[in-house]
Design a protein around this nucleic acid. Sequence first.
DNA 1: TTATTATAGTTTCATTTGTAACTAAATCAA
DNA 2: TTGATTTAGTTACAAATGAAACTATAATAA
Lengths: 171, 171
Amino acid sequence: MSGPASEPGPEGAGPQSFGPAQRLDLAAYLPYRLSILSNTVSGAIAAIYEARYGLSVADWRIVAILGMAPDRPLTQKDLCARTRMDKVQVSRAVKRLLESGRIARETDSADRRRAHLRLTAQGRAVYRDVAPATLAWERDLLSRLTPAEAAVLDTVIARLQQVADEMAAGS
Amino acid sequence: MSGPASEPGPEGAGPQSFGPAQRLDLAAYLPYRLSILSNTVSGAIAAIYEARYGLSVADWRIVAILGMAPDRPLTQKDLCARTRMDKVQVSRAVKRLLESGRIARETDSADRRRAHLRLTAQGRAVYRDVAPATLAWERDLLSRLTPAEAAVLDTVIARLQQVADEMAAGS
DNA sequence: TTATTATAGTTTCATTTGTAACTAAATCAA
DNA sequence: TTGATTTAGTTACAAATGAAACTATAATAA
């Protein structure tokens, strides 16, 4: 085994050195960096709605989706699709939001398994406060990038997601 | 809905090209997209070491860090700093890895609160199998981007992380 | 009709996780 | 020295989570 790797330690036939192709530097590794970045950003945003209204990430996603189109009630299944959360997460977030009076539920008369959810006046007030704050945070973040950086960010994230989805699907 | 932002702002679509600034569209919202992307990528990678060795994300991070510099044993505190996990997460991962024989622990003779951790032969075997597989996945992902996309990715992630850290610190 | 299967959403239970309290060892202040 | 404080790491307990089982309703097939 040859390569630029440094000498083994002092312990005789000590621990292996790994060739360049196998060298994993976590700090430079894309999945790890994405995870740290996502956690940093999500944490900063979450601080806004957690501190002000005691909402979890899941709760806020539901409010955000319902707030986007306030005149069109959605079922929990709709919310699953739009938030990429599973039905149990959605069920629990909906329960919390019903209990705290931020959303209202009305059973579908044509199919009584389903129910339509919408923001209450209270829920809309939360949305009107939090949505601009989170958008302002995002704008602030993006404004600190150079124009060139900001310009490619959208494209690169979209491409990475597309490619990662393909690879996850086994392509 | 593929139409561009309705409010391009005074500078046109340049620095503000990342989605509409006035209304919250979760699907265009950077923190949400980062979260989905990170989960997709991490999930694909995790499938490799979970399926082969039953390792959790935390477990693998420990193995990856120890495998990077196999000749230099690290304390749990070192691992906290390098993995950005807290001491409880590290303690639990270390416990699992000790039980499964992937790492060994030796108390520091000069400071008996501390202990030095290193991969065992078994742990190194895991590292030598998984590290190349995860790097291959990363290379595969990056190879599907255009050269221009791949070129800016590193810079943009680093900048975003830097800026998000500044903002989280209250700057 | 009645039996079968599918769908929307909930509940249960075991596991995981986060926070805080804790132990043990080292350091500091007097 | 001795008592207080800090540090490395663990443990205990409550809350969050995920997977599977479950309820209720609707759709389909015989």
